[in-house]
Design a protein around this nucleic acid. Structure first.
Lengths: 216, 216
DNA sequence: GTGACTTACCTATGCATCATAGGCAAACCC
DNA sequence: GGGTTTGCCTATGATGCATAGGTAAGTCAC
């Protein structure tokens, strides 16, 4: 078609992301991508090393994008509000960009994972939990529990696991957030099972103002 | 090679499962499977309709196998013990059979999903939670929270998310189970945040004997 | 046991995708 | 404006999915 189509790795990753959202992650193929940007498949090798390379760029892009949205959602919030906002941001991202979301779960080579936005997500969870004033190792335990819950939730929700509704997914989510808030609230006293959940709830709210921004 | 190799759909699904565990889900290809069982690729079409069909059989098989193990683990237990056993069974299965575990997350056609072991997993979670004596809709909320946590946890653990240890994954898992136990214990009183976690903990233990078996 | 049917495997073939090699012309550089 | 770089191309090969059609092993009637 056009000589000099103006391609570059970033542009290709962006197009691949759109392709994934529109037709599924499985449709992200060099041939399909080439068709989409108006070149022949071999031409793409000037910009990406392989199909795997392309998909890793897509994964990194999705990790960065979603981290940005989550950071924005969590900024200025703490305690239960922060947990809700964090999970909601992931869920919204997964819903609006299913292909990108699916790409976030793709395995990365170790060296590219290290420099990518993966660690940033763990930091965001830590930031969201800051209001509970957990010490180590509880904070790490909490990051893992929160991370697992959010990840599992978005996966199941995407897979239609909550589809045959009865209570709608939103109600269950709010209840889940309530539960996590109770747990982390009880941990902030340092002894599991020793805190009164209602009090811990209030505590996390009270600390909202002081600690809920400035992460990233 | 041999005329009449003795193939059938179940045998192929089993071989595909082993192949997935040994070389990854991505290595489950008709060509590789044919090589493994000693026939030429087109011969497999006498037993499975397509690559997609093969993978769905693999998924169903993994869902059934893991459901069996989880049922065995949860049998005779309730409360915190049941939650721990359920999650542990999934985690052990994922660790011992990474390919099968990965296959469990593959999307299924609606009609095959309906008759498969998928619903059985939800029932297992319900059974594990029986000791908390939750009513509806809390029980469904609890099933979803527990399901999301376990799924997310196994995924992250498999992906190496808890690898750079500090607190090891096992310690975090026990803490997570403690947390869920506190949450579900508080729900069993009917009002979120009104129960004393220590008491709810004791309650779920006391009910262990009466309600912890007979699921499936 | 011989012949007919059924079934499980085969070869041959076509298409899609990933990937490499090598060519040609546009863009850029002075 | 001549030389270099760069971005796209065609040609080609490997691998995997899938279909069509052939052939022989196994099964059954009698």
């Amino acid at each position: 078609m056009s000589p000099r189509a103006g391609l570059n790795p970033d542009r290709l990753a962006a197009e691949a992301a759109d392709l994934a959202d529109e037709q599924g992650l499985g449709a992200v193929t060099l041939t399909a991508l080439a068709r989409r940007v108006g070149v022949k498949p071999p031409s793409l090798y000037a910009h990406v090393a392989s199909n795997r390379d392309l998909r890793q760029r897509l994964t990194l892009r999705a990790l960065e994008e979603s981290a940005g949205r989550v950071a924005e959602a969590v900024a200025g919030r703490s305690g239960r509000e922060a947990i809700d906002a964090l999970g909601q941001a992931y869920r919204d991202y997964a819903s609006a960009h299913p292909g990108r979301h699916a790409a976030m779960s793709l395995p990365l080579d170790d060296e590219v994972a290290a420099v990518g936005a993966g660690p940033r997500h763990a930091e965001l969870a830590r930031a969201a939990l800051r209001g509970y004033a957990l010490g180590e190792p509880d904070e790490t335990h909490a990051v893992r529990l929160l991370g697992a819950t959010v990840r599992g939730w978005t996966d199941l929700e995407r897979a239609g696991g909550f589809a045959r509704s009865e209570p709608d997914a939103e109600a269950s989510w709010q209840r889940a957030v309530d539960g996590l808030d109770v747990v982390f609230g009880s941990w902030s006293r340092g002894v599991a099972g020793a805190a009164d959940p209602a009090a811990s709830h209030a505590t996390s709210r009270a600390e909202s103002q002081a600690s809920g921004q400035g992460m990233v």
